[in-house]
Amino acid sequence: MVEPQNRLSIKALKVWRISAVIKVVIEWSITSVVVLLLNIFNGPDWISITLIILGVIFTFLHIFLFPTLRWKRWRYEVRAEEIELQEGFFIRSRTLIPMVRVQHVDTVQGPILRKYKLASIIVHTAATAHEIPALEETEAEELRFSISKLARVAEDDV
């Protein structure tokens, strides 16, 4: 089974890590409040210790391990007849999107992606939307144009 050849931008790692830091700060804020309330109301110490240990483990996983694994596994390829996406590190998912099913293609760029000159592509079909995240801006625009052109050609052939 041949894997798709194209990878996401290496800058995706920075973007995903920044997003993870934001999530971890929120998680630590909630954990701090819970630990503080446990101390105020004389709750068991083992709960506070467990929450802190789990917080440290989840911080490492979300900021360092998961983005790296996600980037290594994420691949895509656009062919004349289909778009193939591969993602996932625990459960691998491979998706084929026939060009005849593509209705429209969007590029999306939030503030963190914009800072690193990245954009995501969303391919819409009648039933679902599929995302190719964190591509270089120019690559995303070229790919969006290419997919929309191939989808029109596939539609004309039907």
Rank of each mutant, 00 (worst) to 15 (best):
F145R: 15
V123Y: 09
E137H: 11
E137Y: 09
L113S: 11
F145S: 15
K115G: 02
F145M: 10
E136I: 02
A129V: 05
E131D: 09
R144K: 15
K117F: 01
A127H: 07
E139W: 02
S120N: 09
L118R: 05
Y116N: 02
R144N: 10
L143T: 10
R114C: 00
L135K: 06
A140E: 01
K149E: 11
S146H: 15
T125V: 03
P111N: 06
K117H: 13
S120W: 02
S120R: 03
R144S: 10
V123N: 10
S146Y: 13
V123C: 09
A127N: 12
A126L: 11
V123M: 09
S148N: 12
L135V: 01
E137N: 14
L150R: 14
S146C: 06
E141S: 12
I122K: 15
T138Q: 14
R144D: 00
L118K: 08
L150K: 15
A129Q: 14
R114V: 00
T125I: 08
E139S: 11
E141R: 15
H124K: 11
L118M: 05
A151F: 00
Y116G: 00
K149I: 02
T125F: 07
T125Y: 07
E131L: 07
K117T: 05
I121V: 14
P111G: 05
I122N: 11
S120T: 04
I122S: 10
L113Q: 15
E142V: 06
K149C: 00
L113Y: 02
H124P: 01
T125N: 06
T138L: 11
K115E: 01
P111W: 12
E131T: 15
K117N: 13
I122E: 11
V123I: 15
Y116V: 02
S120P: 05
I147K: 10
E136R: 12
A129D: 10
A127T: 11
I132V: 09
R114I: 01
A129S: 15
I121G: 07
A129L: 02
E131F: 02
L143G: 07
I132Y: 04
L113W: 03
E142A: 13
T125S: 10
E136Y: 04
A140F: 00
E131W: 01
E137W: 10
I132K: 06
A151M: 00
E142S: 13
L143I: 04
I112G: 05
P133K: 10
E139H: 11
S146E: 13
I147S: 05
L113T: 05
A134I: 01
H130E: 08
A127P: 03
K115H: 10
E139D: 12
I122V: 15
S148H: 10
F145C: 06
L143W: 07
R144F: 03
K115S: 08
A134T: 03
I112C: 03
A134Y: 09
K117M: 07
S146Q: 14
H130R: 09
A129C: 05
L135F: 02
I147A: 07
I122A: 10
R114K: 15
V123L: 09
T128G: 00
L143S: 07
Y116A: 01
A151L: 04
A119S: 15
A129K: 13
A134L: 03
R144G: 06
L150N: 08
S146F: 13
L113M: 12
E137A: 13
E142W: 07
I121N: 08
A140M: 02
